[in-house]
């Protein structure tokens, strides 16, 4: 009944024996012990489990681990490199785009793909672009700002201020 699969997560190979029904999110969290990606719902609604599969943002609670055999999987744990944080991580931190942090990894992984495809998104494109990720804490304003900041940073443009703006 079980299948032997090898998942390549953040460049490292994890070989495991899984039932076909095992969800990718469980394989990542339990078998590969990478607990940065989370589970927030049962219905592909919240996006807390978002990882990249071959560069595409994916809800790993709705994909079977066996389906990811041989694919390149990227999770929040793989964002930072020896050189430092990924710009999206800096962007979230500097713009106060997280409170409890539970939805944050999924949102950052989604944002990475969004910026990859659309390096210069408008506010509206960002809001629609992260509409598969629920955040209950931040009200989204600062997540939008964080993605805009990251967009500037990744293109070497002048960085927007990260001080809060008040009316």
């Amino acid at each position: 009944m079980t299948k032997k699969i090898t998942l390549k997560i953040n460049g490292a190979e994890h070989t495991m024996e899984v039932e076909p029904r095992m969800l990718l999110i469980h394989a990542i969290r339990e078998n590969a012990s990478l607990t940065g990606s989370h589970i927030g719902c049962d219905t592909s609604s919240c996006g807390a489990c978002t990882v990249l599969i071959d560069g595409k943002s994916a809800k790993s609670c709705t994909i079977l681990a066996v389906q990811a055999q041989g694919k390149e999987i990227a999770t929040v744990e793989g964002l930072a490199t020896a050189e430092g944080l990924h710009p999206i991580q800096e962007g979230f931190h500097l713009n106060h785009a997280l409170h409890c942090g539970f939805c944050t990894p999924g949102l950052m992984m989604r944002a990475v793909e969004l910026l990859e495809k659309n390096p210069n998104p408008t506010e509206d494109e960002i809001r629609w672009g992260i509409s598969g990720n629920l955040c209950r804490c931040t009200g989204y304003n600062n997540i939008v700002s964080a993605i805009q900041w990251t967009s500037a940073k990744m293109q070497g443009k002048e960085l927007p201020s990260t001080e809060p703006k008040f009316v």
């Binding site: 989370h38 930072a80 944050t104």
Partner: peptide, 20 residues
Amino acid sequence: SKKRKEDARFIQGKGNYVDD
């Protein structure tokens, strides 16, 4: 407006929630 000290672990997937 100090940036948050707790962010470092959350943005790197090192938060420790109960299911972890």
